[in-house]
């Protein structure tokens, strides 16, 4: 019998191993997410841990999310004015800015900034707890680590991200407003009137839904990679990097999916 050449078999084997490894990883993350949600839903609850995480994720992220939105909103207004002026559409600055900020840039940039700050911190903290056996210690102290460590983080991030993005959207629109009225010659009342008239309920709802999904992803990736880290300081470092990179990719992917589902048929 004539078999396939060895190098082709080797390539196929490598591809197969890669695909199986990828599917196994997805399966592990989905199982972890399911367990995190189940543990968040069922008692015992840790309200103090939840409030602590809401403060850490929400309150302490406000400056970075607010500044990002402010600068992006102003830059967006400037770019729309320059681009719009080429075909006499400079007056669209308020409408395009508010839609761009609320539908896309507010939730996505806010999500990415919070992922950079929070996913990495969660992975580093939980990874350190793992390698110093603090997570094993929880189990011997009659405490379920998933309930005590993971559920409050996932719940807090999912709840608090919509509020963060709401604030981010307002500041982003404000950034565009300030630039447009101080540098581009727009009338303040007219700008606000056009902004409000173009903004629809769907825009706000989709923005907040995206924010909640991004919050879930941010906490899930930080917790998953930290919880499963091993190999000492190097392992914690890898977990931190993996948490941020995977959160970024999943935020951008889920943003595309939500955008296509909500606005794709209009």
């Amino acid at each position: 019998m004539t078999g396939l050449p060895h190098d082709i078999v080797g390539v196929l084997r490598a591809i197969g191993r890669f695909v199986l490894g990828g599917l196994a990883s997805i399966g592990r993350v989905v199982l972890f997410a399911g367990r995190a949600v189940a543990h968040a839903a069922l008692p015992p609850y840790y309200p103090a841990r939840l409030i602590e995480q809401i403060i850490v994720i929400g309150w302490f992220s406000l400056p970075v999310v607010g500044l990002t939105a402010l600068f992006t909103g102003a830059a967006l207004a400037q770019q729309i004015f320059i681009g719009g002026s080429r075909f006499n559409a400079a007056a669209t600055v308020p409408a395009v800015t508010v839609i761009g900020i609320v539908r896309e840039l507010g939730p996505v940039l806010g999500g990415l900034m919070v992922a950079g700050r929070v996913s990495s911190a969660m992975a580093a903290e939980l990874g350190t707890m793992r390698v110093t056996e603090q997570i094993d210690a929880l189990t011997t102290l009659r405490t379920d680590p998933l309930r005590y460590l993971i559920a409050p983080r996932v719940l807090a991030a999912t709840l608090v991200m919509p509020f963060l993005v709401l604030v981010s959207n307002v500041i982003g629109v404000l950034g565009g407003f300030v630039l447009a009225t101080t540098r581009l010659g727009f009338n303040a009342a007219n700008y606000l009137d056009r902004t409000m008239s173009f903004l629809k309920t769907d825009d706000i709802v989709s923005s907040l839904v995206k924010a909640a999904v991004f919050g879930f992803i941010i906490a899930l990736m930080g917790c998953y990679h930290g919880f499963h880290s091993n190999g000492g300081a190097e392992g914690v470092g890898k977990a931190t990097t993996s948490a941020v990179v995977s959160a970024f990719i999943l935020i951008l992917l889920s943003n595309l999916i939500i955008t296509v589902v909500v606005f794709g048929s209009r």
Binding site: T132, E133, Q134, D136, A137, T140
Partner: peptide
């Protein structure tokens, strides 16, 4: 069970 971990594993 109770357990004393090698490094203490204090929180």
């Amino acid at each position: 069970f109770g357990m004393l971990f090698q490094g203490g594993a204090l929180f």
